[in-house]
Amino acid sequence: MADTIHSPVALIVPRASPSPGILLLKRLWRERAVRTGAVIVGIVLLAALSAPVVSHLLGHGPMEQFEGTALDEMGLPIGPTLEFPLGADGNGRDVLVRTLYGAQVSLLVGVPATTIAMIIGTAIGLVSGFFAGRTDRIISQAIDVALSFPFVVTALSLLALNRGGTGQPIVPPMVVVITIIALFSWAYFARLARGLVLELRTSPMVEASRTIGASWARIIWFDILPNILPTVFVYWAVQLPANIVAEATLSFLGVGIQAPMPSWGNMIAEAQRTSLYQEQPWFLAGPGLALFLTVVGFNTLSAGLRNVLDPNRRRA
């Protein structure tokens, strides 16, 4: 079995480099998909951060209505002007400012929801994969059950329950949306982590730790977790755009982020419901393109990360 490395790739692995962290960053940056994705995600982040600044510069709050200046004499929203760069919506609000605030909402919902799902899912997957046998069977069944719930129907019912006697939500809708999205995406992380752990738990690396008497906790913490995290992080970036779309879906259906608070989902819904996008296309195009750009950015980034971090896909 000598000389198992056939591919000459082994030769180009840099040898004497000081920090693996810097090396990793360099390798990431050499991947074009990572660069492109990072730039697009950077733009989205910048947009979300710049929302209050732009709002201040233009003098338009995200929920302020300018019936005098933003609507014409027929009551229809005006198109792009210097004062309203992306025009106005049916209520005379600034589409650009609302789209930028929408980015904040998307990230504020998507990032925590995906992160919570990742932590819960990875923990459950670790337990399931590591303590195979009955534990694994029960958890796998639970994952299958969790995955068999239809997302929209379940989410609609849960959000409907969140109405008190006066019709006011009992818990802030944003928290409910985050919880629901997390509930619907942890199972994917659990499945992924379970598969990775199953492969690792019988590896020579883990058996070597067992023979020196390492405890389960130690093996999970030092041997398994660091070796599955890169893949899990990549999956986080894969799942995030899906969850941003999920938030937009719920808001579009009127059960997510509630008007007048801007979210891409409820902006698109409003443009579509009032058909005003036929008069003022940017009313629909602003949030629509922003959503598109965000999803493309994260998807490109995650594809690039996978190219670099996934040992099975490493190219020569």
Binding site: M1, P204, E207, T211, I212, F222, D223, P226, N227
Partner: peptide, 23 residues
């Protein structure tokens, strides 16, 4: 059991797989 665990150790075939690549 613990004390016997110390007494019997293993060297595996593939040194590429038996060392944790991240430590």
């Amino acid at each position: 059991p613990g004390d016997l665990r110390r007494s019997i150790q293993v060297v595996f075939q593939d040194p590429y797989a038996s060392l944790n690549p991240r430590r």
